[in-house]
Simulated scan of single mutants.
Amino acid sequence: MIKNEKIDFVLTWVDDSDPNWIEDKNKYDTNNKLPSVRIRDWDFLKYWFRSIEENAPWVNKIHLVTWGHVPKWLELDNPKLNIVNHRDIIDEKYLPVFSTTALEISLYNIPNIAEQFVYFNDDMFINDKVNSDDFFVNGLPKDIGVMSPILPVQEGVAHIVLNDLQLINKYFNRTDYLKHFTKFFNLKYGVNNFRSLILLPWNRIMGFYDQHLPLPLLKSSYQEVWNRFPELMNDTLSHRFRDNRDYSVWLMRYWQLLTGNFVPRSLNFGKYYQIEDNTVNIDKEINQKLHKLIVLNDNERLVNFEKTKEEITRYFDNRYPDKSSFEKEF
């Protein structure tokens, strides 16, 4: 791989309070395929930008992917900011889409996106100083080559990940990851090496350990996958809402792993939290900077949304009190 100094960040975001978006969604969402817990906005976006400016000022460009709305406070003239409408990356015949899988597999279509980019959901934050080589080294993504069987649970995206793995197993098997032995069995993975070890008797790829963290990705990986499976990718775009027949961004990640196009990274680089009514651990995480990356994931088990939102907003405001250059001066 040739090293490319430029690294972009990509963030997908939706304003679930936008009346025009609500009207558009309700035309198609007759069976509540998009529950509110999956899309409700916590108003943390300004803290995302503040954290980026403080902790990753080296980023080349930030691409904010939206249905068409932007926050009123956002400084659109910031030279590092690029607003990306869904129509910029997805053919008009498939729009509107309300599916994250459709958006995620289309990110490589962002005009002028760098070969190296990091994909964020809006619940993912950089909470301590990071360098570019925390995400890419000599043009290769930093990632975790740990094997782990897919869990057949009803919640989440198990069906979609299984679709990804079915394609992967047409082209790869155990021999392919053993070619890159030191990347799939590495001291940085600690005891998690046993996950891969236990799966060695099977020639098939049973699954990967998927940390729900920002994903370092290569535009060229997208292009290779799309060139091989154009019909399946376009079929995913045809589903306005997430569907069990979809293929996902994990397919691009798995392709990178099995071709050896990655550099091993510690599993302790980031921490995933399911937001609960007791937010003490999140307060500690944000203000003591325990991990470089954190994920604050919404879920149905949360009882008091407004109270919890107010608490976490206070934690972020204590940690990032100053406006960033991505915010307007009112």
Rank of each mutant, 00 (worst) to 15 (best):
E276S: 14
P19Y: 01
K93Y: 04
H69I: 01
P57I: 12
E115S: 02
L293H: 08
F326V: 00
D283N: 15
G190W: 13
T101Y: 11
Y108N: 14
H212W: 09
F125I: 06
K129C: 00
R253M: 02
L251H: 05
L81Y: 04
V84D: 00
V295G: 08
F330V: 10
L167Q: 03
N4Q: 12
Y47C: 08
N20D: 14
R314H: 07
E311H: 11
E92I: 12
V303N: 08
W250V: 01
N163K: 08
E5M: 09
I275R: 04
K142I: 14
A114L: 01
N109Y: 11
N32S: 10
Y209F: 14
N4F: 09
L257H: 04
N112P: 00
I150N: 15
I22P: 03
K27Y: 05
D8E: 10
N60M: 04
G68F: 03
Y171H: 13
S106H: 04
I52W: 06
D91N: 14
S148T: 00
S324Q: 11
F136A: 00
V263Q: 13
I62T: 08
V153D: 10
R253N: 03
V59R: 08
D88C: 09
S51V: 14
N173Y: 04
Y108K: 10
A158L: 02
N192H: 14
R301G: 10
N127T: 14
K61F: 05
N121K: 06
D322A: 10
I294A: 02
R38A: 12
V137Q: 13
S220W: 09
V70L: 12
P214M: 09
Y171M: 11
R240Q: 11
K170W: 01
L178H: 06
R50M: 09
